[in-house]
Design a protein around this nucleic acid. Structure first.
Lengths: 230, 230
DNA sequence: CCTTATAGTGTCATTTCGACACAAAATTAA
DNA sequence: TTAATTTTGTGTCGAAATGACACTATAAGG
């Protein structure tokens, strides 16, 4: 018999923090999953996550687990929903605060810490542990909502990117197609992009222009209040 | 010494569900608070809420506590954020899943169950217990975001209401002023309002037209996908 | 009875949105 | 090598939406 040394007058649920990690490879959105090494759901794929310690908030827990299990240090870890169905974990009552993180996919491709971590696109998802399929669906919904208020795309793209890449990202997240020319002018009007280097030729070329996200301009824009319409 | 009969191998936080209840009296937004009868923060005002039982989800808990403490049975109870700062409760580690509810203010004015419940507007708020002032600020932010996607106003207004009332509600929530005439045409174009009865006079009168929210029309609109712009 | 405040409606200029065509350079195929 | 194709960047133009604004009628208040 194990020693049960933490005792309470009333029953307490366990609390975990899980982390849905989104990446973008230039074409489609990916999710980072970890293959479980222990029961329950041994060998099934799941989101990084773990039990909340008594000296950390759930956000801190999510960041810690993210780092421990994937080596990632992402600033943009944000909770989006708390899943509390009574039987969502077969071991005991576990309530999980689900977070999402947006990372540049290059930061984790060298899987040193992340021996059992792997990127999946949505059309090749393996069966997930626990209720993680539901968590993923909710995460996607929240991301879609958020992209209309904040240019979260720039956390998914490399430092320097092209306009077609940015459009692909928006199309992949929202699941729609945009007119390329209208997307260009809309983005240019926001004035949150800085052109990097010179355009290769005089007027137009097939080599795309490189851009960088301009956080200063974005802060100004956000202060004025705005809405990204798509 | 009390009997501590629920024991675990690892420490578990307590989990509560709190409920920020919004109402609207035709002029300004109100919050329903309950005066605490016990320590800690005895006699301070707080949101209805309580500990999550092992056989209920946090949403069920929020609805149950809401009913037990105010007599309200509101369908629109929705979680919006989980607060997990380590020392937010002096008794023990308590993580709370915060919800908000939108209710018609008339449903609770007869305070039978709610002896210690009282509506407050934002400019006359008493000091709140725990971190409930922070919870309220976050709740307000979430409500503002949501009103742009769903016509939540109708859960706050009586069954039958006037256009000026509806505009006052939007202005109170978003904290801005709209041009009355533009607001009218924008609302009329949505086609989610049904006129109730006849207009008093031939062309214009000072007696406002009564409207009712049309859930069928709204469902159609929502299926098409839409955005309330303000 | 007169003044004031509020309710309803429509106009019009400006801006935005969304469909669309063209030219230049790189890639691919022949 | 040459021609066809793909990709990138930019501008136009009509339709639709936005936002400022004026007028009339009636109820309320003094």
């Amino acid at each position: 018999m194990e020693d049960l040394k933490y005792c309470y007058k009333y029953p307490h649920p366990a609390v975990t923090a899980d982390c849905v990690i989104f990446g973008f490879d230039g074409v489609s959105i990916k999710v980072l999953l970890i293959q479980r090494g222990i029961e329950p759901y041994k060998d099934r794929w799941a989101f990084p996550g773990g039990f909340v310690r008594m000296d950390e908030s759930v956000e801190e827990c999510a960041k810690r687990e993210l780092f421990e299990e994937t080596g990632l240090k992402s600033a943009s870890v944000e909770q989006f929903y708390t899943f509390s169905d009574v039987n969502r974990d077969p071991r005991e009552r576990v309530i999980t605060v689900a977070h999402y993180a947006l990372v540049k996919i290059s930061e984790v491709c060298g899987g040193d810490d992340a021996a059992r971590a792997q990127w999946f696109s949505f059309d090749e998802l393996p069966p997930l542990a626990f209720d993680h399929d539901r968590i993923l669906r909710v995460a996607l919904t929240k991301i879609k909502e958020r992209i209309c208020f904040e240019p979260i795309g720039f956390e998914l793209l490399p430092e320097v990117f092209t306009m077609p890449e940015l459009q692909n990202l928006y199309e992949a997240i929202l699941g729609v197609k945009f007119d390329r020319r209208n997307f260009y002018s809309k983005m240019r009007k926001l004035e949150i992009l800085t052109q990097v280097g010179e355009r290769p030729a005089g007027t137009s070329s097939r080599i795309p222009i490189l851009y960088r996200f301009n956080p200063t301009k974005y802060a100004e824009l956000k202060n004025r209040g705005f809405r990204l319409e798509f």
